[in-house]
Design a binder for these strands. Structure first.
Lengths: 201, 201
DNA sequence: AAAATATGACCGAACAGTCGGTCAGTCAAG
DNA sequence: CTTGACTGACCGACTGTTCGGTCATATTTT
């Protein structure tokens, strides 16, 4: 289950290649052969580092999510008023996700798989679940600080945090099929303002 | 390209079966044989009605999107104040999408495919594109009426409409991996209130 | 130092399972 | 008898995984 040992640099190269290939071709259509090729190694070698295609999915998901959480936590620890922190958090999160274009497409598929697993009564991928919980907690902390500081109105924290995350997800989502970048930027600015306005006292 | 003729009832049965099977197993893993079986016909007969698996995807996408737009337009034509109409529109849209659980999972994959197509410089599935445009237009119409009636503040319509749709998408999205229905309902109520508050004059 | 030996990372040809799509034949209707 | 809807056994392309063998490097022996 845990990644096999050997050269960790090669293991990373495989993950990097996998992210590129799977984003381009999809989780099912992406071929191990192409990943090996992109990583500059033989097909057989991939199996020296990962037991199966599925294990690559998981390792890839872990990498992506921890990158995302790291970036969020960096934002979170910036020294800003709750108001500015939340505004920045949302804008930058969207931009980070957007820059990780490849990762974004993969997360979409993994998320869909998770939803399917839940429908089947199975356990969803726990990495994904924990990541989204920890993102929500970050937002709740900002909101709570804002209410303390009397910058925001009283609110149901969980509800507003869900709104904020829904907003982030949804915007990225919409963006994926948007070809008009300037219009998107304007929409984002207005969207954030409108959201912030809903938090005023 | 257009669906072959013959018995239209059977054609619909195939689409219905396809929606169920593809939602359960994913677009790639879903087997034609299973669809045929679920529709109560032989595998070969499927190919009397559709030329390929891909043509089934398209027909299925068309069916789902037109169902969704029909439902939205019904909401849109209700006789309510802009304020109530928007609130209702958002809540009911989320509930509609949520009830079409199978469709939701399929749309996710089709959307991801569209995003991939755009990245490749190809044309995305036009059905999806037009559908999302027409949803946005519906929201813009409501917003504009609200500003006319002095119920809403002045705003950038496109931006706020994008926010509203992002909110709907994102909420559904979050919900797909949520197992706690009551908490979700509370979050939804708070989310909508917060959103509406952002539109006040 | 040089030769002999051992190690294990690396490789890609071959294998085996899976499905989308085909088609020769069956069957029912007119 | 003719037509055409229907069927499922079959084909072949595709690709995840395996595995026997290669080779660069490290270690031991002489």
């Amino acid at each position: 289950m845990s990644p096999l040992q050997k050269d960790p640099a090669k293991s990373e190269a495989i993950i990097r290649a996998a992210i590129h290939i799977f984003a381009r071709d999809g989780l099912d259509k992406g071929k191990i052969a192409d990943i090996a090729n992109e990583a500059g190694i033989g097909k057989g070698t991939v199996y020296e580092y990962f037991r199966s295609k599925d294990e690559i999915f998981h390792a890839m998901g872990d990498t992506i999510m921890s990158d995302m959480i790291d970036a969020s936590e960096k934002l979170y620890s910036m020294d800003l008023s709750p108001h500015d922190k939340l505004r920045t958090f949302m804008r930058m999160n969207i931009e980070i996700i957007f820059e990780m274009e490849d990762a974004m497409l993969i997360m979409t598929e993994i998320w869909a798989q998770g939803a399917r697993a839940i429908k089947h009564g199975e356990h969803p991928d726990t990495t994904l679940y924990h990541a989204s919980q920890s993102m929500k907690q970050l937002v709740i902390n900002i909101l709570r600080a804002g209410v303390m500081a009397q910058e925001f109105r009283e609110m149901n924290y969980d509800g507003v945090a869900t709104l904020a995350l829904a907003f982030i997800d949804g915007f990225v989502w919409q963006f994926m099929v948007s070809t008009n970048r300037p219009a998107f930027d304007r929409a984002l600015a207005e969207g954030i303002e409108s959201f912030m306005k809903g938090l005023e006292r």
